[in-house]
Design a protein around this nucleic acid. Structure first.
Lengths: 145, 145
DNA sequence: TATTGACTTAGAGTGAACTCTAAGTTGTAG
DNA sequence: CTACAACTTAGAGTTCACTCTAAGTCAATA
């Protein structure tokens, strides 16, 4: 068998700290982790898959509380798939919005970099934002909604 | 004149709290805000533009510390444009990487939603991840690097 | 004149998400 | 037999980024 992992192996596999893995269990993101004879946690592959999914929720900005709400649904309402779907759909929509904002902010940052390149090319130290302001106006005029 | 704003107006314009605007000044993200006769802060349009740019850095995941380093460069090395550019380029690269990770995580979340839709359509409560695992394998096989 | 409201300061408090510590148990290697 | 490494627990501590409080100043209004 030996397909079950120790907490350390899980930590290595996921990139979390051992502490964080225990913490996630304590706050209810993971449940019912099996124990070996001596009381040590043994993680099944399913546990790891679940943990990795939770990490994606976290990485996309879902709070521990919200992840907990989702985990609770999965544990306590095995027949209620709809609620879980709605929760994830709401999250997906937030993530998409966030992605758009990020992409826009990235654009502005790239514009600022171009501005610096322009300054370097022309040897000027700083025009106190005249060039930059023009750029910004362009941005807000037709590149943003 | 009246083109200079009170701290409250700045807060409204940027969506920050009045407290946060003062906090940003205290930790060195803003400097030299003018004062009116009675000692109240008066923000110039340039101050607001600068603040808005800082907010984009924050929104893309730059820490207060790093923003401070950037702000310090701008204040103390007006002739050294290159360092500022390098700092922003490094940040841009991190943001791009993060965007890719986010987009991928979003994909997986959407897959999970599809999985739930599938369960709902077929009336099954949960196959304990057989369908889902297949999906995941597909993902890791050819949709991810 | 009294109150209201917007501002000022220094510094204390908060919430999120870990992160670490201390004290103890267990299993193996020398 | 002893040392060591890996685990266990409860709970304390840390970091970040605000967020709020208390006490005070000042200008305008009732």
């Amino acid at each position: 068998m030996a397909r079950d992992l120790t907490i350390q192996q899980v930590a290595e596999a996921t990139g979390l700290s051992v502490h964080a893995v225990r913490y996630y269990e304590k706050v209810g993101l993971l449940a019912l982790i099996q124990r070996s004879a001596n009381g040590h946690r043994r993680y099944s592959p399913e546990d790891v898959v679940w943990l990795e999914f939770l990490m994606r929720l976290r990485a996309t900005g879902m709070s521990i509380q919200q992840v907990h709400a989702f985990a609770k649904l999965v544990r306590e309402q095995p027949t209620n798939v709809k609620e879980r779907r709605l929760l994830l759909e709401a999250h997906r929509d937030r993530v998409k919005q966030n992605l758009e904002k990020l992409a826009h902010n990235l654009q502005v940052i790239e514009l600022k970099i171009e501005h610096y390149q322009h300054l370097e090319a022309t040897g000027k130290s700083d025009l106190h934002c005249i060039f930059w302001q023009n750029y910004l106006e362009q941005m807000s005029d037709h590149k943003l909604h």
